[in-house]
Design a protein around this nucleic acid. Sequence first.
DNA 1: AAGAGGTTCAACCGCCGGTAG
DNA 2: ACTACCGGCGGTTGAACCTCT
Length: 253
Amino acid sequence: MGRSPCCEKAHTNKGAWTKEEDDRLIAYIRAHGEGCWRSLPKAAGLLRCGKSCRLRWINYLRPDLKRGNFTEEEDELIIKLHSLLGNKWSLIAGRLPGRTDNEIKNYWNTHIRRKLLNRGIDPATHRPMNEAAAAAAAAQVEATTISFAAVKEEEKSTSGFSGKDTKIPVQEKCPDLNLELRISPPSHNQSEPMKSGGRVTICFSCSLGVQNSKECSCRNDSVGSSSSDSSATGYDFLGLNGVVLDYRSLEMK
DNA sequence: AAGAGGTTCAACCGCCGGTAG
DNA sequence: ACTACCGGCGGTTGAACCTCT
């Protein structure tokens, strides 16, 4: 389509924000609220691109930001959310109050990825490394089906499950990995799906797609069968009570 | 002490979807 | 229906900082 740039770049500052610029931006947004980002820089007397202002506000200046180190609970929550949503950082951030998508993305790339690798888990597929490798090899033989592992291999990228380019698998290559990713309201036999503090009850191994493992404590029977089994099981995932979150719809957003 | 190499994270870039005209 | 614009997103970059030798 050939879009014009979001602002006149010739007269905009780039790089790190100064204290004065921060103060101006904060003062303007306090007075006028988050409005039109395109016109904000001029109105606020900032020599910045509107996008840059938005990013600075959202990622750094917003008063409700938590800052500081991630807790162990947040770590596990991010891992669980990533196993379901992939690199949908904004969706993940939406479930972590006070955290930004950028912050989570950085944290994932610098800490959690390594953490999972140390556990022997492929951060892209959330499956044990050797198992993921085997699945990838099998996928190369059987080119008519697509698996996450295969996608990752082809793209040779660390973000094999990236949002824009993600292809919804046409057929499950890894039967124990529920690619439908449907999050459903709790069923009767999970009358108390949430523990205090919003912690989910699905076991960690299941959340990573290792549903046959000995560690599995929730005994989800979706292994090797249709996803309707898992949707019938009905996790109340992260407090999404009464909401059926179908990843395919997220993809179509 | 200093330089090399590694890590972190704020910021930028380019693309996409939604929407107003 | 089409075009242009805007906000938002995810991937990437690079400066600052840290650790090791």
